[in-house]
Structures are given as structure tokens and as C-alpha cells.
Amino acid sequence: MKNTIKVLLAEDHTIVRNGIISLLNDETDIEIVADAKNGQEVIAYLKSGLEPDVILTDINMPDMNGIELINELRADYPQIKILILTMMEHEKYVTLCLDAGAHGYLLKNVNIAEIVFAIKQITSGYKYICTGISLNLLAQTNLRDINNGSNNSKSDVEISKREIEILSLIAQGYTNSEIADKLFTSKRTIEGNRQNLLEKTGTKNTAALVSFVVRNRIID
């Protein structure tokens, strides 16, 4: 039997916080063990003995924001995974959070399936950046490569026809659930395929995976 992933949610907007709790409550293997309005409340929960596996936190919060919270957690609670959920999509915030020690970064326009997938990814030891940001970073990387005149040779990684279909849909920004619907299979199967692709290509997240397959001309 799988262990339930315990999540502590930090979000200062009550409606948003309650909405996330309501959606995640439908997940059988994820449990919201507490919710907080800012980083100080998160630290108070941890000092009281609460032991979440993941802290799902916004960046913009009063009293102690997400960046300050990451720094506190990395110093005193390094075993806890940190997943950012924010409206801030600029590359500098992604870099700032990941460099500080966050394990994942999501925008608030993602659907619940991608939040669930991200939670499972980071608790499995991977990092995760949402598809929207991944594609933006990929576009910037490709532009820099063009300007610098760089050229990568095709990889020897063996990718099946079905995996190429999945990679193409990932690159277009579809979620696991949407890919499953399009390919008439289950979300769990797509999650497994995505994980296999990460391992095959030696990449750590969706951004790196998409960059790998495009730059090696596995997909156009």
C-alpha cells in the first residue's frame, strides 16, 4: 500500500487556499495536513511537531514570503520538499526559487492534474517546472543557440513511436490527463511513460526533457 503524501499549503488568499484544498482532497494518496497564510505560520506548524512531506507555497505572502520560507526550510528542515505555486512567471523568479532550494515551480493557471504530478515527482526525488514555463525557457534556450551558432548532434537514445507521440504532446503543453485522453490510455500510464523518458534521456524535469528532444531533433 502506498504511503500518503502529506502536504502543508501556504497561501494568503483564502479563496485560492480553499480551492486548492478542495481539489486535492479528492486525491486518495495526497493529504493536506494543514494550511497557512504565510511562512511564519508554516514554521510555527513545523515547530509544533507537524511533519509534512511537501510544502506547497506561494511566493507573495505577508510577514514571511515564499523565498524567505525556502531559506528557513533549507536550513532547518532539509528533508521537506518545497513546491512553489505562484502567478510569477518571469525566469528570474524561477531561478531564484530553485537556487534557494525549491524542488518545483508551478504557475497558478495549471490544472489540478499537473499539481498532483508535480507533488509526486518531487517526492520521488526529481525537480519539476510546469509545462508553460518549460516551453518559455526552451524557446529562450533555442534562441540563444541560434544566436550563438550552436548545433547539437542527434542523440542515440532509442525512443518508441508511442513515446514520440507523448513527447510531441508534452512539448505542446498538454497535461498527463489530456495526453491520456488523446491517446486513449490512463493518466497513470502516461505518468509512467514520462518518468521512463526522463530516465532514458538523463533529464531531471519537463523543461530539460523537451529541450533534449527538440535540440536532438527527436521531434520537430
Results as ranks from 00 to 15, higher is better:
Tyr93Leu: 00
Thr86Phe: 08
Arg162Trp: 08
Ile159Arg: 14
Asp29Lys: 04
Asn148Trp: 15
Ile55Lys: 00
Ser134Asp: 13
Glu68Asn: 11
Met88Asp: 13
Gly132Leu: 14
Gly66Glu: 06
Val94Arg: 02
Ile21Trp: 08
Ile115Trp: 12
Gly66His: 08
Tyr126Asn: 11
Ala34Thr: 15
Arg17Gly: 00
Pro78Asp: 06
Leu143Ala: 07
Thr123Ala: 01
Val213Pro: 05
Glu41His: 07
Phe184Arg: 11
Lys127Trp: 10
Ala208His: 11
Ile146Glu: 15
Tyr174Ile: 10
Thr14Tyr: 14
Glu199Ala: 06
Glu27Met: 05
Arg215Trp: 09
Gly125Trp: 08
Thr28Glu: 09
Ser22Asn: 09
Ile20Leu: 05
Leu83Gly: 01
Leu169Asp: 00
Ser155Gln: 12
Gly104Glu: 07
Ser177Ile: 12
Ser124Glu: 10
Val210Arg: 05
Arg194Trp: 12
Gly149Ala: 04
Lys6Met: 07
Ser153Leu: 06
Ser48Lys: 06
Leu8Met: 11
Leu135Arg: 10
Gln172Phe: 11
Thr95Ala: 09
Asp220Gln: 08
Arg162Leu: 07
Tyr128Leu: 01
Ser211Ile: 11
Ile179Asp: 00
Ala10Arg: 01
Glu178Tyr: 12
Ile159His: 03
Asn196Ile: 15
Tyr105Gly: 00
Arg17His: 05
Ile20Val: 08
Arg162Ser: 07
Ile190Phe: 07
Ala100Leu: 15
Asp99Met: 06
Glu11Ala: 02
Arg17Ile: 05
Thr203Gln: 14
Pro78Leu: 01
Lys81Asp: 04
Glu72Gly: 05
Arg188Asp: 06
Ile219Ala: 04
Pro62Trp: 01
Ile67Met: 13
Ala171Met: 03
Thr14Asp: 15
Ile70Pro: 03
Thr86Ser: 04
Ser160Arg: 03
Ala102Val: 14
Val7Asp: 00
Phe184Glu: 12
Asp220Ile: 10
Glu163Ile: 08
Asn152Gly: 01
Val54Ala: 09
Val16Asp: 07
His90Ile: 13
Glu158Thr: 14
Arg215Thr: 05
Arg217Asn: 10
Tyr93Asn: 03
Ile166Pro: 00
Cys97His: 11
Leu8Arg: 02
Asn147Ala: 11
Gly132Cys: 15
Gly49Trp: 01
Lys187Asn: 07
Val54Arg: 04
Asn176Arg: 12
Asn38Gln: 09
Asn3Ala: 04
Leu143Glu: 03
Leu24Arg: 00
Val42Asn: 00
Tyr45His: 13
Arg74Phe: 09
Thr131Asp: 04
Asp12Asn: 11
Glu68Phe: 04
Asp12Arg: 06
Leu85Phe: 09
Gly125Met: 05
Leu167Thr: 05
Asn3Phe: 04
Val210Pro: 07
Leu96Ala: 01
Asn216Thr: 10
Ile55Asp: 02
Lys200Tyr: 08
Tyr126Asp: 12
Ile15Tyr: 12
Tyr77Asn: 04
Asp12Thr: 07
Cys97Leu: 08
Leu167Val: 12
Ile119His: 02
Glu72Ser: 03
Met64Gln: 03
Met61Arg: 08
Asn3Lys: 04
Ala36Trp: 12
Asn205Asp: 12
Gly101Tyr: 05
Asp26Phe: 02
